[in-house]
Write a protein that binds this DNA or RNA. Structure first.
Lengths: 115, 115
DNA sequence: CCCATTGTTCGATAATATACGAACAATAGA
DNA sequence: TCTATTGTTCGTATATTATCGAACAATGGG
């Protein structure tokens, strides 16, 4: 419990929507890959239930996410915003590139929730 | 990730409401106490933001929870149900005693979410 | 400069969630 | 048996969320 209860509630709310959870895990997985330089089988959660067999890099995140989830662009945009508001990810735009990163602090908080 | 995504979404949904999170943590904390035989300062999350300085045992859970949260009994009952539906707790009634337990499987799942 | 692509914002709508009080059921004690 | 307590269920009101499409803004390429 390394964070206020109300903050945990916010994080959990962001992850309580299945679509958003999926998006978050995509980004999380991508971040892991790019940090460790390899795909970690443990995190290949997407292949199981999701539809994104050819997921590239999350730098062109948005369109790919759109492509593989049956949601409109406005909805996806909304979900990205929610994840940002909950402090789970940060997104920045560099020209055409839309770069997403998982917020390490949030990851630690989640890991430390009941630990 | 030791559970299906959709199950995680369910768990997070249950914990996404601040009142319900508080209730869950009360039960969690009580379960820890009774298992280890001592209060663990790390889990005294309730004192921080909550209102239950004299929390006894969760065996008479319901009324105490009611007493220290500003919610009607029907609402509390509803929240308990939600926590049960998400698989986070189990409740059983023994006469007047309403005994709650945290579901250990769910705890493991939460701990294993990003681990 | 025009176009295609990509993301945002707005307004609408349908679905879900939160909460209450009233009525009810089960239980223990007087 | 009557009563007080405790939890459940039901109907309802209000608030929040999820989603869409349309209109818009920014960007890079031709």
């Amino acid at each position: 419990m390394i964070m206020k209860q109300s903050n945990y509630a916010k994080i959990f709310k962001a992850l309580s929507n299945e679509q958003r959870l999926k998006i978050f895990l995509m980004i999380y997985e991508e971040c892991l890959k790019s940090e460790t330089g390899r795909g970690n089988a443990e995190f290949n959660v997407l292949n199981e239930e999701s539809c994104c067999p050819c997921l590239g890099t999350l730098e062109k995140a948005f369109s790919m996410v759109c492509g593989c989830m049956n949601l409109s662009r406005s909805t996806i945009s909304h979900h990205f915003k929610e994840l940002q508001n909950a402090g789970l990810i940060t997104c920045e735009r560099e020209g055409q590139i839309f770069r997403c990163r998982v917020n390490q602090g949030a990851v630690e908080a989640i890991k430390g929730f009941l630990a």
